[in-house]
């Protein structure tokens, strides 16, 4: 074998080997990334407007949301997931604030951080009226805290 062809075949071989290693690593990461998530839907109906009372928000445990209903302003939906480390916050009527049990974060009733390590306010989700008259919440669609649905 000539020196020139040895070097070019050798280089090609090394490039092919390392490409194969790289592609395989990429394939491993892709393999470990699920293609389908068997998780609750992000967009769901929560019932008729009349099901929700005025006053303190209704907590939906499964969906991890608070549904606010106000006589003048209408409906708003807040996330119950603390923005710090994902614990479920509780709404305390005594001081009208959200308290996180894990690390003591406190959010005002508009979701803003008032105390503790939470880096962001609680999220608010879009709530719309579905064709069948039920309320529909879209967790993929964040809205400002001032968002309200009048029914």
């Amino acid at each position: 074998m000539k020196r020139r062809s040895f070097l070019s075949w050798g280089t090609a071989g090394l490039v092919a080997l390392w490409s194969a290693v790289g592609v395989s690593l990429g394939a491993v990461v892709r393999f470990l990334t699920p293609s389908v998530f068997y998780e609750p839907p992000q967009n769901f109906k929560i019932g008729n407007p009349a099901d929700f009372s005025f006053g303190p928000p209704t907590f939906l445990a499964e969906e991890k949301i608070f549904v606010f209903r106000d006589r003048e302003k209408g409906f708003a939906v807040a996330s119950a997931v603390c923005t710090h480390l994902g614990c479920t916050v509780g709404y305390f009527q005594s001081d009208e604030r959200f308290h996180c049990p894990c690390h003591g974060s406190v959010f005002g009733s508009d979701g803003t951080v008032q105390h503790g390590p939470a880096p962001r306010p609680l999220e608010w989700f879009e709530v719309t009226l579905a064709r069948d008259g039920q309320l529909r919440v879209d967790k993929d669609h964040a809205v400002p805290a001032s968002y309200r649905l009048m029914v």
């Binding site: 479920t88 049990p101 894990c102 003591g104 390590p117 880096p119």
Partner: peptide, 25 residues
């Protein structure tokens, strides 16, 4: 998943870490 115990604590060997996290994640 709907009910966070209060307080929710990590395993004891990570509680030093959780203590730090309670100040800044």
């Amino acid at each position: 998943p709907a009910k966070t115990p209060n307080p929710a604590k990590a395993p004891w060997y990570f509680l030093g870490l959780q203590e730090l996290v309670s100040h800044s994640a």
